[in-house]
Amino acid sequence: MKRRNFIRNSSRAGIAVSLLGVYACKEAKKENAKEQTGEGLDTQSNMEDASPFFELSLAQWSIHKMIKNDGVDPYTFAEKAKKWGFTGLEYVSQLYNPELSDAGYSEEAMAAFVEKSNAEAKKHGLKNVLIMIDGQGNLAVDDAQERKEAIEKHHKWVDAAAAMGCHSIRVNLAGTNDPVKWKNNSVASLKELGAYAKGKNINIIVENHGGLSSNGAMLADVMATANMDNCGTLPDFGNFCIKRKKGSYECEEQYDFYKGVEELMPYAKGVSAKSHDFDASGDETEIDYVKMLQIVKEAGYTGFVGVEYEGSELGEEAGILATKDLLLKAAKELS
């Protein structure tokens, strides 16, 4: 090839390569712009993959039948929760009886409970969230000495929660049905127990758990009066029965679910997603989860939402998974 033709052909090739480079650069810029604006992306897929505004924990009460009736070891709680897709653990004190109660909740027994629970949580990469305390005395009882003893019994659980890295213990406010006495006794107990727990960096939280505590307005008033930053609520979607019919589980006096949760959310340090039965679409038959989660979201809550299945139509594992699936489905439907 003559040198002149070689130069001409080389020039043409150089121009072609240069043009290809410019084109490629422009296309790369277009794709980058699309990525930044979301243009051309599968919006539906993104919505489906979006994480909810809360984290998922499992309330151990959801497996109380396995433990109490079937002899399942309560220390397999973390293993089960991990398998079912949860990241947080909500323990229930009574499910470790008679191990703890037979030992009189001794220092040694409590230390063993903490050590074993921590080991299992660490092994499965889960977070200890809270401990639900039952059977440790009535915090709203009239008798001052009885109330003092109940508060002291809760101290061991505050210590355990602190050693486990939990943020709270859940307590019950039972003891009287007189509204005025109930409020005064509840506030006094929360202030005293809250003061002890503050030094351990633990919250004292109250669930709407029957009796006057299931009156959302009254429990919110207790929190406002106690006025302690480490005392709060654990709104439960379904525990709003104030009074049951004598000799029956049927509710006689029912507080409005949605009103109650809305009243308790300003003080919430946890949320409990109660469930019993499901329809063919996978929705809870009595509780509108979309409406409930909207209330929770609008309150600015972004912590753990605990699954607490209490039904009998499904087995405990199936009920737990159905509740978890419903929470995730409902979260996608929020405005």
Results as ranks from 00 to 15, higher is better:
Tyr105Met: 02
Asn185Tyr: 01
Ile204Ala: 12
Phe113Asp: 09
Met164Ser: 09
Phe240Gln: 01
Asn239Met: 01
Phe86Gly: 04
Tyr258Asp: 08
Lys65His: 13
Ala33Leu: 11
Ala330Thr: 03
Ala322Asn: 02
Ala224Tyr: 07
Phe304Ala: 15
Glu107Phe: 03
Lys291Asp: 04
Glu79Ile: 00
Ser93Ile: 06
Val271Cys: 14
Cys251Met: 04
Asn227Phe: 11
Ala33Phe: 03
Lys324Tyr: 00
Thr43Ser: 04
Val17Ala: 15
Tyr267Ala: 07
Met132Phe: 08
Glu317Leu: 00
Ala224Gly: 13
Gln36His: 02
Leu190Val: 02
Asn69Trp: 11
Asn172Asp: 14
Phe113Ile: 05
Val290Leu: 02
His167Gln: 14
Gly165Cys: 07
Gly238Phe: 00
Tyr258Lys: 10
Lys82Phe: 03
Tyr289Ile: 05
Lys198Cys: 03
Tyr309Leu: 06
Lys191Val: 11
Ile242Cys: 00
Val271Glu: 13
Ile151Met: 05
Asn208Met: 07
Trp61Thr: 02
Lys200His: 15
Met223Leu: 15
Leu193His: 01
Gly14Glu: 05
Asn215Trp: 03
Glu39Met: 04
Leu193Gly: 01
Ala24Arg: 12
Val92Tyr: 03
Phe304Tyr: 15
Ser57Glu: 12
Pro235Tyr: 03
His209Pro: 05
Gln44Ile: 11
Lys156Cys: 02
Ile151Thr: 06
